[in-house]
């Protein structure tokens, strides 16, 4: 037993004390400055409290009826946009995904597909939607194109990574039987990636529905446009109804996709 008391303090996360305090200080300074530059308009905010109360009351008593025609039209656009863009997106993401997998695609195809995916992923849907609305006019067609484009970026990347990760043994085995490129694809690659592709596609359905509400704000049709109008007119009870419908549909999509994924995997 040691007679002398030894002190103990837990080892710090960052060993170098200078660096440690520099980081702590920097973070504290940033927070102070960042909070300082948030401009608070108290008069406007006190007004906001009343409105927040009205919105909250709207959630408790949502008004589905008085704007039902608008809501219905917006919802129909959103849902059709979701279905078409998801299906087209999935179909197109398969060739892009295969093209972006280094272990089966030739280099020029690989480079092109990777570049396309990078662009599709790094631009916000809303920004893409703005441009597509300018090019294709207002309405759900621009929204459809936006969502299909984003779906390709999302699915093709994950699909490509999956294909690059597949077990090479069956690939070799099928190749060894003298199968051509297409046969290798159908017999060795697709069976290995199909379950996850289906799972991810299901997941994408509810992302696309959520995004379909967003693109409406910039004129690409859908429930977002209806919500925008309701907010502009300060009709909080209709707005609350729309938000509740969105939540309900996303919930239903998640439940359904969970069910389908459980069946497939």
């Amino acid at each position: 037993m040691s007679a002398v008391s030894r002190r103990w303090t837990p080892p710090p996360l960052i060993a170098n004390p200078v660096l440690r305090y520099a980081i702590y200080g920097g973070v504290a300074l940033y927070l102070v400055v960042a909070f300082g530059t948030v401009e608070l308009n108290w008069a406007r905010m006190s007004e906001g409290v009343v409105r927040a109360g009205r919105l909250f009351a709207g959630f408790l008593q949502p008004d589905f009826t008085s704007r039902w025609d608008d809501i219905q039209a917006g919802l129909l656009e959103s849902l059709t946009m979701t279905v078409t863009s998801t299906i087209v997106g999935i179909i197109l993401s398969v060739p892009f995904g295969i093209g972006a997998a280094r272990n089966i695609a030739p280099l020029p195809v690989y480079a092109f597909c990777r570049a396309f995916i990078a662009v599709a992923r790094s631009l916000q849907e809303v920004i893409i939607a703005i441009f597509l609305v300018v090019l294709f006019g207002f309405g759900p067609f621009a929204g459809f194109l936006t969502l299909a484009f984003a779906t390709i970026g999302f699915l093709a990347k994950l699909l490509a990574e999956d294909i690059e990760d597949i077990d090479p043994a069956p690939l070799e085995a099928i190749r060894a039987t003298g199968a051509g490129w297409w046969q290798v694809l159908v017999y060795a690659v697709l069976p290995q990636v199909a379950p996850r592709l289906i799972g991810l596609s299901m997941y994408r359905v509810d992302i696309n529905f959520r995004e379909s509400a967003v693109v409406g704000i910039v004129g690409a049709g859908g429930i977002g446009a209806t919500l925008n109008t309701a907010m502009d007119r300060y009709e909080f009870d209709s707005a609350a109804a729309i938000l509740l419908i969105i939540i309900g549909i996303v919930l239903a999509c998640e439940y359904a996709s969970g069910f389908i994924r459980a069946k497939v995997q």
Partner: peptide, 13 residues
């Protein structure tokens, strides 16, 4: 992690 020194001593022992 501010344990009494007696506990630290026990732990070392």
């Amino acid at each position: 992690r501010r344990f009494p020194q007696a506990d630290i001593d026990r732990a070392f022992a």
